[in-house]
Design a protein around this nucleic acid. Structure first.
Lengths: 203, 203
DNA sequence: CAAATATAATGAACAGTGTTTAGTAAAGTC
DNA sequence: GACTTTACTAAACACTGTTCATTATATTTG
């Protein structure tokens, strides 16, 4: 059945094209301009057609979130490969913040947007890539604890501490709250804060 | 001129009424339902009338942010009065997170919404109450440093560290990311995390 | 090849959003 | 009572997500 195969393939291709245009709009014009109509125009189809390939807008945002995680993992690859667990955590933390500041639109979709999470509730899938990243951090924290290089005793708690701090930093910076209290609230301040956090946690 | 005074007073009263209805909608129906039309209907006026009292929606959100800070300061009053600076920081941190989790709509407006900040840029005013809160935290951190109860040497850095962590925690919880990695990601986990952070920072 | 059928795509509508403008109705002034 | 100022609103514009009946295309069947 070569014909049905071709149709299947064409269907997949259009789905991919829609996602690709969505990605372009997200990056170039921001999340506030990521509308079904804009996506449809970019893909040269009518808005209604989008709904033949995606249940709703949330499903598109969910797919973009997945893409974002792939990009982030790529960015953090070098950090993951550090042999020293403390250095690994420092590099992950720093890389995490840099990714967030350099890719604000991706970051919003991945860590702040409610849509992808609501989509998960509906489909009962899992926040796969996000969990993987966190679990890797937990494992690294466990290594640090095993090496007795921190006073914290629980790996999950330590990982959550790190995540909260970098997530908080990125969000404060992205929502312009950081520059409200610190004029030159740039990457310098963020680096200093991460270093300070690291010194607090590790011996 | 009693008439112009009355008219001035009536103008102020309607402005207050609009803000009050906006507050009610924010709390009861959430930020996604805080529309000019909903506010106008609640105040029993046409949508266009709102624009005679506020430049745009952002200005209303900005006023709501100010209200939110007043509420938060009230909530944190007890924490502010602790004589021991370390205890003060712990209580502020805990109170901050509790406020965020109990008042998600206020929290979004105060710390995540872009509107009030954009409004500030236009009007060149200041994020007054937010800055006051942060500066108080900085002063308390300085006390802790002076008492030599932490290894961190810079008060502003320490304050930012604390703020980032609690802000990150609240946001992870509010956007359902916390429960993605920790099933029972309730207030218990958050308390434990704050305690862990405090132990790391203070001797 | 033509007719019937299955599939794909869309135009138009619905209910909502923020915002502007022209016009009306009421209140105050002379 | 006539004029002017103020307060208010209906209607429109340009958007948003989403649905559904209709149309056009492609494939299968007679």
């Amino acid at each position: 059945m070569g014909i049905t195969e071709r149709r299947e393939r064409e269907k997949q291709e259009l789905r991919d094209k829609i996602l690709d245009k969505a990605r372009e709009i997200l990056i170039k014009e921001g999340q506030e301009n990521l509308s079904i109509r804009n996506i449809a125009t970019a893909a040269e189809y009518s808005p209604a057609t989008i709904y033949l390939y995606f249940k709703d807008k949330d499903e598109i945002v969910y797919e973009l979130m997945e893409m974002g995680f792939a990009l982030m993992v790529e960015d953090l690859q070098e950090a993951f490969e550090s042999s020293d667990p403390v250095e690994r955590i420092r590099k992950i933390g720093h890389g995490y913040v840099v990714f967030g500041l350099k890719n604000p639109e991706w970051y919003q979709v991945m860590f702040n947007a409610p849509q992808p999470i609501q989509h998960l509730e509906k489909c009962k899938e899992e926040w796969g890539r996000g969990i993987s990243l966190f679990e890797f951090l937990v494992e690294t924290c466990q290594e640090v604890i095993d090496q007795d290089r921190t006073t914290v005793r629980e790996a999950r708690l330590l990982a959550l501490h790190m995540w909260s701090t970098v997530h908080g930093l990125v969000n404060l910076a992205l929502t312009q709250r950081l520059e409200m209290v610190e004029q030159g609230g740039g990457p310098d301040l963020i680096s200093k804060t991460i270093d300070s956090v690291m010194r607090c946690i590790f011996k």
